[in-house]
Nucleic acid binder design. Structure first.
Lengths: 204, 204
DNA sequence: TCCATCATGTAAGGTGTTACATGATTGC
DNA sequence: GCAATCATGTAACACCTTACATGATGGA
């Protein structure tokens, strides 16, 4: 059954270690791993490329940058600008790079997923079919919007060849993954809408 | 500097406008809407039927029940048992039912999604393909497990006809939705694994 | 003997969201 | 004049996770 396999895989839980996940910290390290950025740049990266898989508000970004800075995982340099607010550009330190590499190599922990749409739909048997139908139609709109964003992202990747194609490769894979799941959800949603519309229009 | 006028309390959240989402509160109301349950029963319902869409630990369930009780949305009754710990059975009040109906009718708010696997994969261009391949293979295992659970759930629904078929109907729809997205993810994952294995085994 | 099941909770701390605060420049 | 963009942050609180705490019964 279970072996105490202490041979490989460094156990780095020295003593009272941090059980926390700190995903946002690593995402920011990951972004800075590609190029130095300001908090503002990072927020833009979220909005343009990451928001479908993870998102964070400005407040979280700036406080996390500060804390990364205090942990010496990043350093900042202020670029003075005249007709714009100054830019505080962050870059990885060697320790930051090591942290990032460690996280990237680490297994992804299983974690509770949360889906507000599905969990509400789960209980829709307690209310009128008309309301559930409306939820499904709204969800369909949302999925179509997200798919449009995925198409936009696809074109971005296709038209703008990068200096570092390996980075792009995985970003395109993630996009493809997300698009596939969105399409699968859309199919189920549209079938459910069709079924419900029949039921609502011709109650037996 | 802004001074507040002497007229009111400084508490600006006084008039019941809660910006909070409180999803777990509503999920528990939704479960109690079907039948009275104890905290333990609710945890079991999560583990058996809800965990794929939302999950919560015991501690959160019990504290939420307490707070729902204080808000008079549920009431509890202790059922004394001799050879087992006593059961504290909760049921909806009229106010609780009204809250639940209101939430069910409300539009689902768009919210940041979080996917730890995809966000890590996004950055995998910064490390070796071998590591990314391992992540994809582990993810594949995870998806297969989840799909097996979905199949188990399908059989549960198929074999156990319910007194309230409308509740079941939507639960089956949610299951179908989740299964479809898992399958779509699995396909993309397996294609990526095949591509990477070729690349790793025959580096150009 | 050991483990799973039944059954209910508290305490601490980490994570995430909303609201607030500032202020110059560019384009309509 | 008005809005958007650029640019950086703080405060308060809501939400979620982990660890801790207890203890009887029944089966392998």
């Amino acid at each position: 059954m279970e072996h105490d396999n202490s041979t490989n895989h460094t156990n780095n839980k020295e003593n009272g270690d941090i059980p926390a996940r700190n995903t946002l910290r690593y995402i920011i390290l990951g972004l800075l791993g590609a190029r130095p950025m300001t908090g503002y740049d990072i927020k833009q990266a979220f909005d343009r490329a990451l928001a479908s898989y993870w998102n964070a508000g400005n407040s979280q970004i700036y406080t996390t940058l500060k804390s990364l800075s205090q942990a010496h995982l990043v350093v900042s340099e202020v670029i003075v600008q005249t007709s714009r607010p100054n830019r505080k550009v962050y870059r990885l330190t060697a320790a930051g790079r090591a942290e990032l590499d460690h996280w990237l190599a680490e297994e992804v922990p299983e974690r509770f997923s949360k889906d507000e749409f599905l969990i509400k739909l789960f209980f829709c048997g307690e209310i009128a079919d008309e309301l559930a139908l409306r939820h499904l139609q709204e969800h369909r709109e949302s999925l179509l919007e997200q798919l449009a964003h995925m198409e936009w992202a696809r074109q971005q990747y296709a038209t703008r060849p990068s200096r570092r194609p390996r980075l792009l490769e995985y970003q395109m894979l993630v996009r493809e993954y997300k698009e596939a799941t969105l399409k699968a959800g859309l199919e189920v949603t549209e079938r459910a809408i069709a079924r419900l519309q029949e039921k609502v229009n011709q109650p037996s």
